[in-house]
Design a binder for these strands. Sequence first.
DNA 1: CGCCTTTGACCGGCGC
DNA 2: GCGCCGGTCAAAGGCG
Length: 312
Amino acid sequence: MEFTSLLNTSLDLNAKPQRILDEAPLLRKQEVPSDFIELGRNITVKEERGALIEELNRVNAENKKLTELLTVMCENYNELRHRVMNISKNSVVDNDASRKRKAESSNNNGNTGGTNGPSESSSSDEDSCKKQREEHIKPKISRACVRTEASDTSLIVKDGYLWRKYGQKVTRDNPCPRAYFKCSFAPSCPVKKKVQRSIEDQSILVATYEGEHNHPHPSKPEPTSGSSRGVTLGTVPCPTTSLSSSAQTVTLDVTKPKLATDSNRKMGTPQYQQYLVEQMASTLTKDPNFKSALAAAISGQFLQQNTRAEKW
DNA sequence: CGCCTTTGACCGGCGC
DNA sequence: GCGCCGGTCAAAGGCG
């Protein structure tokens, strides 16, 4: 993101009006001349005041417009982001499906050369049924992106469940190792989790969940009989990492877990909602993609305004 | 002692 | 058939 690094995208929409407001008392001091004989000067001050008020109103209107624009841009950004996610999800599903189809077609080729010649049509129907069944059986996959401290080298994603690490591997596409976890809260729970640092931003942990938990969410740390060392039990109330929808991608900032655990533990309280809003805002502002999109949109707006001004 | 992490070995799928 | 790669296993060692 060279663009964002070169461009300061931090917005200070209120800076100018605020400055004018700050200057206003000074102007008011000026507008009451100690010497009333200086009438001409008084008139010019009044004119100046009127002009400034007009300017203030204009800037306020502009500020309001920009705020609305920013809101619209944020909404558009979120919508676009959702669309991109959906597209990428679909492509992943398509790839999986094509892989399965390939594998199954090779199996079919092997089979048709063998014994089940006469029942070919029925078997293909069975295959389609099997495929449908397999699609239903196919474990739900969801993703969660968790922002951690850059210094934190552990691949632990605190999502409230109990995980046991059973492997670690360095994959080709990412120099950071990928850790494999199994849900150990319930012995029969089939859920697996892969955790790997994002190749773009290594402070972000990408957790991929496969399957669904067949036990209730351990919202509070269970008192374990043995040692609880290395247990990735989280205390962050984290509804966004639930597995209710497949291929869900969520980004959380858990660099300040203290705030989440202490003062905002009760979900649904205004404090908790406020905390969630703050989390979303901070996550959005930290997102380089959002910054670049915002910068591009704003520069586009400025260019438009400049061209309009040039026309005038 | 029990449970955990670590890590090298192993396995199966896939492409060439 | 071979090599690559992702995923899993299991032995070894650590910790409370």
